[in-house]
């Protein structure tokens, strides 16, 4: 698929969801579909799909240690081991996984190859790491902040998070820093795919789609908070109905809310089928979660069975008479 097709398909699907929700959100008989049924269905698909994918990975045997090693492995006592990049113990693996999951260490190690006066030179390139970590942590804070709509009374730590996120008190309601960071970071990740030729070459519709989707979620949320305002009390009435399993559909919530919800529902439902599953996959990556004990320990292939063998002694027993007739020498008479 060319870049134009990938882009127009992924952007087209996102825009179609926006239009459907905009139109459906205005029709009062359809509101329960967009406000209650779609979110519940998406959430169930997400949970079941996520667990299915993880169990499926768990059932796949990984008989040998295949960690990606990028440091000195454990060897002679006077050679210093790199315990994080080439772990030989569970503790090292845990350290490596914590750095990977919380600090995106493998992205941090990203380098860029460039030609400098006729030589190829590898230099540090932290932009992708910065964009990714800003995006992920902003998204996490935004998701946790949204619990204020799903919990009653609102716990103190969510109120605290809200205050910190809006600490500059810009406008009313206050501008959230994570809103800016999320939209900025996702835009960077999108633009990077579009303007770097190598990135554009390897990017597919399923790379662009989540970026457009998350950008749509961010933009619709910001629009709803600052520009096309909705009654937040009615919104919480709806979300609390969902969270207490007694769904209600309050009247008078603007269509922009249904756009926001439809895009989030799409993200939830799409999640288990997509590259977004790296959220669960990072924990099950044999390249990260195995210690490099290839030679230090015995690793047995779990599907190994006793192999049927036919040694020469048996062969001779089977064909001794025929061999004698043909004049072939035999070892035992």
């Amino acid at each position: 698929m060319g870049v134009k097709v990938s882009l127009s398909v992924s952007l087209g699907v996102v825009l179609a969801i926006v239009v459907v929700a905009l139109v459906g959100g205005e029709v009062s008989t359809l509101q329960p579909v967009f406000g209650i049924f779609v979110p519940y269905a998406a959430f169930v698909i997400f949970l079941v799909g996520f667990i299915y994918r993880v169990v499926d990975w768990g059932r796949s045997p990984v008989p040998y240690r295949i960690p990606t090693t990028c440091g000195q492995q454990k060897t002679l006592p006077w050679i210093k081991q790199n315990k994080i990049e080439n772990p030989s113990s569970t503790l090292g693996v845990i350290g490596r996984m914590i750095l990977e999951v919380f600090a995106f260490r493998s992205l941090f190690r990203h380098t860029k190859a460039e030609m400098a006066s006729g030589n190829i030179v590898y230099g540090a390139s932290k932009w992708i790491w910065l964009g990714a970590i800003l995006f992920h942590y902003s998204f996490l804070i935004i998701a946790v902040r949204h619990l204020r709509l799903f919990l009653e009374p609102v716990p103190f730590f969510i109120n605290g998070l809200d205050l910190v996120d809006g600490m500059f008190q810009i406008g009313a309601p206050t501008l959230y820093l994570t809103d800016l960071l999320l939209i900025g970071a996702v835009s960077y990740l999108l633009v990077r795919r579009l303007i770097v030729p190598k990135m554009r070459y390897i990017s597919l519709a399923n790379d662009y789609f989540p970026l457009f989707l998350i950008l749509g979620i961010g933009i619709s949320g910001v629009l709803m908070r600052f520009f096309i305002r909705v009654d937040i009390v009615s919104v919480k009435e709806l979300t609390m109905g969902l969270a207490t399993l007694h769904p209600v559909m309050p009247e008078g919530i603007g269509a922009i809310f249904f756009v926001h919800v439809a895009l989030i529902s799409t993200l939830f439902a799409y999640f288990p089928f997509s590259k977004l599953m790296h959220a669960g996959g990072v924990f099950l990556s044999p390249g990260r979660n195995l210690a490099n004990t290839n030679r230090a320990k015995m690793h047995v292939n779990p599907w190994e069975y006793p192999v049927k063998i036919h040694p020469y002694e048996d062969y001779e027993d089977e064909f001794r008479e025929k061999m004698k007739e043909a004049g072939i020498p035999v070892e035992r008479e």
């Binding site: 709509l149 009653e152 919480k236």
Partner: peptide
């Protein structure tokens, strides 16, 4: 009433 309900702390 509503500010506490929706976790809003106006300044």
């Amino acid at each position: 009433k509503c500010h506490n309900y929706t976790g809003v702390a106006p300044y």
